[in-house]
């Protein structure tokens, strides 16, 4: 049910994009919407991040995943249990670039007790990592549409990516990886009863949306070629704030563009904010040095406590009888 709703919604969006552009005035889909989407994305994301950043971190609560810093002769696991900013940086880098925590699953011993053994969620780690890295590379490659001259690192990325030199234009591996990884993540959500049970429509929506974008992109590149020069013209004109829509761009491109716009607008609202969010996660981005450096809670307030005086008042006689020292005789 959740799956169907999401699939239908994304399919409808694609169709709206493709044919909307032919029915409605082109500038709506080619100019107004992209600007609006970028604006929503940028402002939305900024607001979201500022909202998080505006909430204080009252206590220092890192999850420690290794030996603490204590006595000099005991070896600290600096990246699992950092005690200063530099080590935290290292830990964060591992988390963000390599999804360190997800990879913990792989450490479970893969003992062959009987027949085939599945690495717990090693696949999730591979799938997620492949998807994100491929996505990052795909984004970099897209820069060639928005820049003139194209910076060297973009050309280089593109060259490296297409090194297999299959087909014309050459198939980029990241495209394939992205699609496969997305399909795997989708498959996993559907096939694993546990994950299916916890999944919300939103989870499928995000996946279908990305699949739609990547799929339509690949289709344009390899099957129904679109007028890349025209697209670049459009993109550059948008970048330079002098929009003009060349003719002859295929509807599929507008479908692709429309989905991207939806993604941009959805990004700050939904769960995709996990990307920026992870940087702020207090269990990961703090050093476990509470006992060495005091952490201050900005909203700390006095609480009602039971003072020693009140305590002694209640028990004084008995304390004296038991030979315990008291403050007031």
């Amino acid at each position: 049910m959740n799956v169907l709703i999401s699939l239908v919604v994304v399919a409808c969006l694609l169709i709206v994009g493709m044919f909307g552009a032919t029915i409605a005035p082109q500038w709506i889909f080619a100019v107004a919407l992209p600007y609006a989407a970028v604006a929503v994305f940028a402002i939305g994301l900024a607001v979201r991040i500022m909202k998080w950043a505006g909430v204080p971190v009252p206590f220092r609560i890192p999850t420690t995943c290794g030996q603490q810093r204590s006595l000099p002769w005991i070896r600290q696991q600096k990246l699992e249990n950092p005690s200063n900013k530099l080590q935290v940086l290292g830990r964060m880098a591992l988390e963000i670039l390599f999804f360190r925590s997800l990879a913990r699953n792989t450490r479970t011993e893969l003992r062959k007790e009987r027949g085939l053994v599945y690495g717990t969620d090693l696949f999730l780690w591979i799938g997620a990592l492949a998807m994100h890295w491929a996505l990052a590379v795909v984004l970099i490659r897209h820069l060639r549409l928005f820049t003139d001259p194209v910076p060297a690192f973009v050309t280089f990325t593109e060259k490296a990516d297409g090194f297999l030199e299959i087909g014309l234009p050459p198939v980029n591996i990241t495209t394939v990886v992205l699609l496969c990884a997305l399909l795997y993540l989708l498959y996993r959500r559907l096939a694993n009863a546990r994950v299916r049970y916890i999944s919300l429509p939103e989870d499928y929506f995000a996946l279908f949306l990305l699949l739609g974008i990547a799929g339509s992109g690949a289709w344009m590149r390899h099957i129904s070629h679109t007028d890349v020069a025209g697209v670049k013209e459009l993109a550059l004109s948008l970048v330079h704030f002098s929009p003009m829509v060349p003719t002859g761009i295929s509807p599929l491109f507008f479908g692709h563009l429309f989905l991207v716009c939806v993604l941009l607008m959805y990004f700050p609202l939904g769960k995709l904010v996990h990307g920026p969010g992870v940087f702020l996660s207090p269990t990961r981005n703090m050093a476990n040095n509470n006992r060495a450096v005091r952490h201050v809670n900005p909203w700390d307030y006095p609480v009602k406590v039971h003072t020693y005086e009140e305590y002694e008042d209640e028990f004084r006689e008995k304390m004296i009888a038991a030979g315990l020292p008291v403050d007031k005789e």
Binding site: T108, L110, R111, E113, V117, T120, N192, A193, R194, Y197
Partner: peptide
């Protein structure tokens, strides 16, 4: 429940999935 079935059947590590292992 189905979700549990999936988890217990799939994970074969005897410590990560003691119930599934014991049943097996």
């Amino acid at each position: 429940p189905e979700q549990t079935y999936a988890a217990w059947k799939r994970e074969s590590n005897r410590f990560a999935n003691p119930v599934g292992h014991s049943l097996r």
